[in-house]
Design a binder for these strands. Structure first.
Length: 419
RNA sequence: UCGUGUGUUUGAU
């Protein structure tokens, strides 16, 4: 059994699930009994490639065979399922696991976090209550997860209330403060964010790179680029090394202020300091060039990023499509979309389509915009409020109030609330 | 022994 497990582990790690499965069958035929580890290895492999159904079958088999994996193994599997975006299956697994072993704070934390990610805040809260009913106390990580979930749901004041209940046994750490600072910044409460920075220092928690980057981002949102620049310098003086995220934040901020040339200078300076750009860095800069109507340069930068081995993603192409639309070149934008789709580079999403529809509307090509809308729906991509707003605004501006009204009706019928 | 949960950056009205 041990030998088989080792081999299976290697096969799974090498992404050879077909061979792993073959070996597993082989193992059963050889009357060599799999144990819990055997199953865990296979289940992890299946989760990683998204074969959740199969993974769940194995979980059931394991139960039938009365095999009992350890708690950490269970947590690993739950975490894998969550990472594969299968919260429902994770919860099902969780139910089964409660029969085999007792979930701990990590188990609950993993599940609560993934419920937040799919917007099920209430279910998450219920699970938290269930946990405390079991006599388990949240630790700092779980506090941070809950605080982060509240912040992302735009409930910063609730997050702050929950934060204030942290006491002796579980004090706020750097992550707690950075999470709250980020939440405040996104609600445009930079001053409060800086107050919290002072609090954290007073309470003996040193701000780290993430804290600084978060605050820099907050200043960017407030269009306070010069303050952002100063904070970056202050951060370096205090001995912290800016990361690629810090630089990208700065570049994105400069771009949004129309200072794309400075952003490009910063890119060069950053590379000289030995920090490597990411796709997000390039996307931010391409966006800056598009906003500044420097489409040729935007394409040049795209070519450069490709040459350096980066794969442009949906953000890159949507940004370029938007840039072309803004420049009144929705024909080129349409072509670009067709190109990337036919080359299979990316699958357009609701934002991509909406941007392009907006471009068509701007040129009063309303029929084409509607045709694109249909095409989007046919391809299985659901419109959202912004999609409808874009179209309605387009029709309205073109004086086609009937068309606008029809769309509004359709929007309401589809279950959207007009804003 | 090792392996599991948390914070910061990019696209639309």
């Amino acid at each position: 059994t041990f030998t088989y497990n080792c081999l299976l582990n290697r096969l799974v790690r090498a992404n050879r699930l077909d061979m792993a499965n073959e070996l597993f069958q082989n193992m059963l035929e050889a009357r060599c009994s799999p144990n819990a580890s055997t199953y865990i290895v296979l289940i992890r492999g299946l989760c990683r490639v998204g074969e959740v159904q199969e993974a769940c079958k194995l979980v059931k088999q394991m139960k039938v065979l009365n095999l009992k994996p350890g708690l950490i193994d269970c947590n690993v599997v739950i975490s894998d399922l969550c990472k594969a975006g299968r919260v429902t299956e994770s919860l099902a697994l969780f139910d089964q696991i409660t029969n085999i072993c007792t979930p701990d704070v990590v188990t609950y934390s993993t599940l609560i976090h993934s419920l937040h990610k799919v917007g099920k805040l209430d279910d998450a809260l219920q699970l938290l209550v269930q946990m405390t009913d079991q006599g388990l106390k949240p630790d700092a990580v779980l506090y941070n997860i809950v605080i982060s979930g509240l912040c992302k749901a735009r409930k910063v004041s609730d997050a702050l209330m929950f934060f204030r209940t942290m006491s002796k046994s579980c004090l706020p750490d750097q992550v707690t403060y950075s999470t709250l600072i980020s939440g405040l910044c996104k609600e445009r409460k930079v001053e409060e964010a800086f107050h919290l920075l002072n609090d954290m220092i007073e309470r003996g928690q040193a701000p780290d790179v993430v804290t600084y980057t978060t605050l820099i981002h907050g200043l960017c949102i407030a269009s306070r680029m010069d303050d952002a620049q100063k904070l970056l310098e202050q951060m370096v003086i205090s001995g912290l090394v800016p990361t690629i995220i810090t630089y990208t934040t700065m570049m994105s901020g400069l771009c949004k202020e129309g200072r794309v040339d400075e952003a490009l200078e910063l890119l060069q300076e950053m590379i000289n300091r030995g920090c490597t750009p990411t796709v997000i860095t390039y996307n931010s800069l391409i966006n800056g060039l598009c906003r500044a109507n420097k489409m040729e340069k935007a394409h040049e930068l795209l070519a450069e990023m490709c040459k350096r081995g980066y794969k442009p993603d949906i953000f890159t192409f949507t940004t370029l499509i938007g840039g072309l639309c803004n420049a009144g070149k929705s024909d080129e934008a349409m072509h670009l979309l067709e190109d990337v789709v036919s080359r299979g580079e990316v699958i357009p999403d609701v934002v991509t389509y909406s941007v392009l529809m907006g471009g068509l509307c701007k040129e009063e090509r309303l029929d084409e915009a509607l045709a694109l809308f249909k095409k989007m729906v046919q391809s299985g991509c659901k419109p959202n409020v912004i999609t409808y707003n874009t179209l309605i605004t387009g029709f309205r501006k073109a004086g086609k109030l009937d068309g606008a009204l029809d769309l509004l009706t359709e929007m309401v019928e589809s279950g959207f609330h007009p804003d």
